[in-house]
Nucleic acid binder design. Structure first.
Lengths: 245, 245
DNA sequence: GTGCACCAACATGTCATACAAGTTCGAGAA
DNA sequence: TTCTCGAACTTGTATGACATGTTGGTGCAC
């Protein structure tokens, strides 16, 4: 791939203490930079006591900093064991989206309105870029959907199909965004499948797969558009997203 | 508008202490629920000491909980003054997107690949749903772009145009997502404008505005698609997003 | 009376210490 | 060899103390 602008982590100067800035801020920045730069590549953070000595701050500051990193989903802390670095994922984004929707009274229908263009675009790229392995995974996902016994399995197979498409774009941000949306639509989707069955989803997936195999971008986009619009129609108005995690 | 599924905050039971769960978790949940439910509607949280008594926990716990809410961008804390509730915004999402892009080496070009379908869809909805006030604001934004002296003003006018379109969809999630993307593309856009001038942006905006005034959804979408693709072409490969906030 | 400077009360930031509770891992028993 | 158990380590919570920043009112100067 050609040289392309990247989101980089400039030389981390954040360690040097800034006068007037709370100690906590620089501590958070230092730890975040270390994590982003791949220090702690074994996934284990040093114990809080060690960090205190290294950074020259008290355990309160280290603890509060780690709490922030925990909410950012950069690390996971549990009592007794040292904190672990989490792999990059969509959980943080799902959190922020969830909070936003709760506080602005946005509806699931409006969320699906965002999903539509994303999935359509993903499908278009996938039709252009998918490789043999991706096609195989799509076939497997379709088969899993037909053979799934429980609603849980059906929902998983459905999600897997869309995820393979997103991965086939070669653009990780598509996967990231789709995951975040899926997280919020998860419960809703499960109930929809339980109510209307898998027929609509299966028909949609087959049409999409067929178009993709022909490398027909236009038809693939159209099929996905229809598939999503159909899913929106089937949205159960009583479905809500639970606020607890 | 019809009755539609909403993201709701179910009756907050999270206050009841769960055995084995760290005190901190329930404290975070309690405070978050209170904020989401509109307690503290004056925007001011009680002092930490008061919260300690109310929740029956020590100040350490309250402080760590507030740190988490701070990283979630739900509150803002500053020394000396009590913490304030922040209005819902896209900052948290921009954070998570930023972290994800840093850790996965995603490029700005890939980010723009996501922006394309979103903006096109937004423009389509805007062409259908925009009202007189929205049209007026679009005209003003175009005029501001032509009359802007500094790169800063140009960049602002550019952003304003896209923001009005997003707001015209009536779907707050579009605004939310676009804001988060814009935050990351901000520096890049500024440099692009400084390098290639406003002519391409201005031409694009005019074409879009013209199509929207005719309520021509197809033409509006096409014009926005061309506009964004043009912006992607002009992306300066040397542009990077700074990691500090 | 009006406006300013200043100070007291208050709130948060940071530190130190102590103990409770959970995890890990090796020594020793079966 | 395998299982059990406990010591050492690590995080969770509480408390008290002091530093630093903010707020609002008092009282002086004009």
């Amino acid at each position: 791939m050609a040289t392309v602008p990247r989101v980089t982590q400039p030389d981390s100067l954040s360690s040097l203490p800034v006068k007037g800035e709370p100690l906590l801020n620089s501590t958070v920045n230092t730890l975040r930079d270390r994590i982003m730069n791949g220090a702690y590549s074994d996934g284990m953070l040093p114990p809080q006591g060690t960090l205190c000595e290294e950074l020259g701050v008290s355990r309160s500051v280290v603890r509060e900093a780690m709490r922030q990193l925990q909410s950012l989903r950069l690390i996971e802390v549990s009592q007794g064991a040292p904190a672990r670095v989490l792999p990059p994922g969509s959980a943080a984004m799902a959190d922020s989206l969830h909070h936003f929707m709760c506080r602005t009274d946005a509806s699931l229908t409006q969320l699906a309105e965002i999903r539509l263009p994303l999935e359509v675009e993903i499908t278009g790229f996938a039709a252009e870029r998918i490789n043999a392995e991706g096609l195989l995974r799509l076939h497997i996902a379709v088969r899993r959907l037909t053979e799934a016994k429980t609603v849980e399995e059906q929902s998983d197979a459905d999600l897997e199909f869309h995820r393979v498409l997103a991965e086939s774009t070669g653009n990780p941000i598509f996967v990231f965004l789709l995951d975040a949306l899926a997280e919020l639509l998860r419960e809703s989707r499960r109930r929809t499948i339980g109510r209307v069955g898998i027929s609509p989803a299966l028909a949609g997936h087959l049409a999409i797969l067929q178009a993709i195999e022909k490398r027909d971008v236009k038809a693939a986009r159209a099929a996905m558009g229809e598939h999503i619009r159909c899913a929106i129609r089937d949205l159960d108005p009583s479905n809500v997203i639970p606020s607890n995690r």
